[in-house]
Nucleic acid binder design. Structure first.
Lengths: 234, 234
DNA sequence: CGCGTCCTTGAACCGCGTCAAGCCAGGTGG
DNA sequence: CCACCTGGCTTGACGCGGTTCAAGGACGCG
């Protein structure tokens, strides 16, 4: 793997860079690794070597369940952390795969511990990050437990928009397939197709080739509104 | 509400007391509040005033979903934290109710912040706590999404044992009803009854009055083993 | 042009949620 | 001490939503 000096990382959204001074970056962030679309960044069950964060790119994070069925637990993009579930554990409980070509930075365990010990503010921010993630995850658990398929698919579309945004044509700005939606919503490809078809006839979305464009954001929000009185923002 | 000096709290499992010296306890933990069975400790939507931890007692933590249906996200007992989801937020996203008479300690926001600022080790431990909680929650999300009812009920029983243990007669050592199991597993009372009945005829559990005794722990584990290769311990 | 991959649609099946009725135990009051 | 009531538990029947299976279509790529 090619590694280059990370001081070139200038992404202002990056969690690490937002919370550390330039000299810290220079000292501690040594590896910056390019990943191709579809390539594994983290494989569940492999030993925890450190923590990753995304300089640029788009990533899905998932468990592998029974007979290989994936359960996507979250999406991540520029500046987000990966592998933080591994902290305090010996192996990663989840896998992470690049949804598009991505550049990932890496900090090894030892360096990370040193950062925690010598920079309490960083530890505090990290704690708050976990707190937010926990709250989001609990909310998603409730959704998956109580929503029907229609609502879960709508919820997944909104999750994708929230994470990756839309381009100038209102298309969700990431490449994904029906299976990704199914694995996020907790259903199967056929149901996703049917629901997307329904949403199209209802004028909520517009399918153009492989891309999905959102035509009526509020319409989608309305579908899940009885479960989520207010949309949770990051 | 009656409040007494918390320096009498000598529970060695208590997260706060395990991580703070006696003089810290004396200075910072000022309120110790008794709760009756069924009483609300935290109500979702109410403003975050601070953080709670359980000196002694048993508590369920849940969301209120569509038409009042509860989704239990976790159980807690002696020494566990409550309301940590509120940190960094203005209102609590969840409710907490005492499953038995409990004694709860309280630390207000200002004091808590002072503790974080002046005790980096405490902040670090708190971060690790969140990390573990996040990992457990993601795993439960996968379970709820992929398991069938039989597996989810078995999983819930194991969760109860893990949290509250068993007494000398192998009975799960907490008072709960069918609805609690249903709200944890993400199903309804009737299905829970049917599954418990099946488990009884299979010799996995023994129903004696309102209590449930575990007869074959490994049998229950086997039911969910394809989803959870190894049991996650606290 | 042929092939592979992903998407779509239809049809059949079944797990599970829902409704309804009955049961059991504990509590209360006459 | 017994009759009644109430809340939780149990059981059966039924129907819907959603999963599964199967076949065909659209599209991109070599």
């Amino acid at each position: 793997m090619v590694t280059i000096d990370c001081k070139s990382c200038t992404n202002i959204h990056c969690f690490i860079h937002k919370n550390l001074s330039p000299e810290w970056i220079k000292n501690y962030v040594k590896f910056q690794i390019p990943f191709k679309q579809g390539q594994n960044i983290i494989v569940e069950g492999s030993p925890v070597l450190g923590i990753y964060f995304i300089q640029s790119g788009k990533v899905k994070v998932f468990f592998t369940g029974i007979n290989g069925k994936h359960q996507i637990v979250r999406f991540a993009n520029d500046g987000h952390l990966l592998g933080h579930r591994g902290i305090g554990n010996d192996v990663y409980p989840i896998s992470a795969v690049a949804m598009e070509d991505s550049t990932i930075c890496f900090i090894d365990n030892e360096t990370l511990n040193e950062m925690f010990l010598s920079n309490p503010k960083f530890t505090f921010d990290m704690m708050m990050f976990y707190s937010r993630e926990l709250r989001k995850m609990e909310n998603r658990m409730k959704n998956i437990a109580q929503m029907n398929v229609r609502e879960k698919v709508a919820d997944t579309l909104l999750l994708l928009v929230e994470n990756f945004g839309m381009n100038s044509e209102s298309e969700i700005d990431v490449s994904f397939n029906r299976e990704d939606i199914a694995n996020t919503a907790g259903t199967n490809v056929e149901q996703v197709t049917r629901q997307l078809s329904d949403f199209t006839t209802e004028g909520l979305i517009v399918k153009q080739g492989k891309k999905i464009a959102i035509a009526n954001m509020d319409g989608l929000r309305k579908i899940i509104s009885q479960h989520n009185p207010q949309i949770i923002t990051q």
